[in-house]
């Protein structure tokens, strides 16, 4: 078993290299967390690489309460939750029709949705931006009466783009489920709506969960659209609002570290608690496609 011995040493080397890199991989995150617990004055005096004199939650308190970051978390929820729910609802309807009935337009429709999702956002945003300046909304939503600078506008664009990806994934998923299950519903004389609502939606549940987790993360992490479509810093979701903590002339970097850690906490929860769904969402398109 000469080869066995040889591959054992090879394995050890591989483990050592992987170990080194995986530690290097997480190091910047731990370093940021470390700095977030230290006061600005300490790191200015002693530098970032130094033992802590003070180590406390002051930066978190200041970021959340004094800088009002809690408000941005609410903004994130207000945008991400409706956007994801509406997207999943609309996409599941289209996926249902194109995978359960054979219309001539099915493939063309799916191609429009799939390709639309791949278009660069920059190609879309110029007319959207101009359009949002002219679409009227009631004063309750925006006192300037235009869709620009409203969370509603942000939700709309997220839904419109994400529908493309969600429809593609859900219709692929439905295609792997035998049609016989649907046909028993037809035997019962169910209407199209009942077929969708009572047969298809429950079948889609695992795919909807994965997609929901993935898209919530994407929308929560969105930076471009929030920066482009929301002028008021106070309306921005947390990810885009982080640039508010970067001052023009002075930035408290320890406060910013605390802000960054706060902003990544929800995604870490997704990572550790809902990882299976997240990974399934990412790979669903690649292995079933």
């Amino acid at each position: 078993m000469v080869t066995g011995k040889k591959s054992k040493t090879g394995e050890r080397i591989a483990i050592a290299i992987l170990g080194f890199f995986s530690l290097a991989w997480v190091f910047p995150i731990f370093f940021t967390v470390y700095e977030s617990f230290r006061p600005y004055n300490d790191t200015t005096k002693d530098g970032y690489v130094s033992l802590p004199k003070h180590f406390n939650f002051d930066n978190y308190w200041n970021a959340l309460i004094q800088s009002g970051m809690w408000r941005y978390f609410i903004n994130s929820v207000e945008v991400a939750v409706p956007a994801v729910l509406i997207t999943l609802f609309l996409a599941s309807m289209v996926a249902f029709v194109v995978s359960r009935y054979s219309f001539k337009f099915n493939i063309a429709l799916l191609m429009i949705f799939t390709a639309g999702n791949l278009l660069p956002p920059q190609l879309i945003f110029i007319p959207i931006f101009r359009l949002y300046l002219h679409i009227w909304v009631p004063t309750i939503i925006n006192e300037n009466n235009v869709l620009y600078d409203t969370q509603l506008g942000l939700i709309l664009i997220h839904v419109a783009i994400q529908i493309g990806f969600a429809t593609f994934v859900l219709s692929n998923y439905l295609r792997t489920i035998p049609k016989e299950i649907s046909e028993s519903a037809l035997v019962d004389g169910a209407s199209v709506w009942a077929h969708y609502f009572r047969v298809i939606l429950p079948l889609l549940r695992p795919a909807l969960a994965s997609l929901g987790v993935l898209m919530t993360t994407w929308i929560y992490n969105d930076f471009f659209w929030a920066v482009v479509l929301l002028k008021s810093g106070s309306k921005r979701p947390i990810t885009a609002a982080l640039s508010n903590l970067q001052g023009e002339f002075f930035t408290d970097f320890n406060l910013l570290a605390a802000g960054a850690v706060l902003a990544l906490l929800p995604t870490l929860i997704v990572f550790f608690v809902l990882r299976r769904q997240f990974v399934a969402g990412l790979t669903i398109g690649s292995t079933k496609g």
């Binding site: 990810t239 982080l242 990412l282």
Partner: peptide, 12 residues
């Protein structure tokens, strides 16, 4: 360790 950065936003 290697998955971790995927869930983070590019801004963070």
């Amino acid at each position: 360790a290697f998955y971790l950065p995927i869930v983070l936003s590019l801004a963070v």
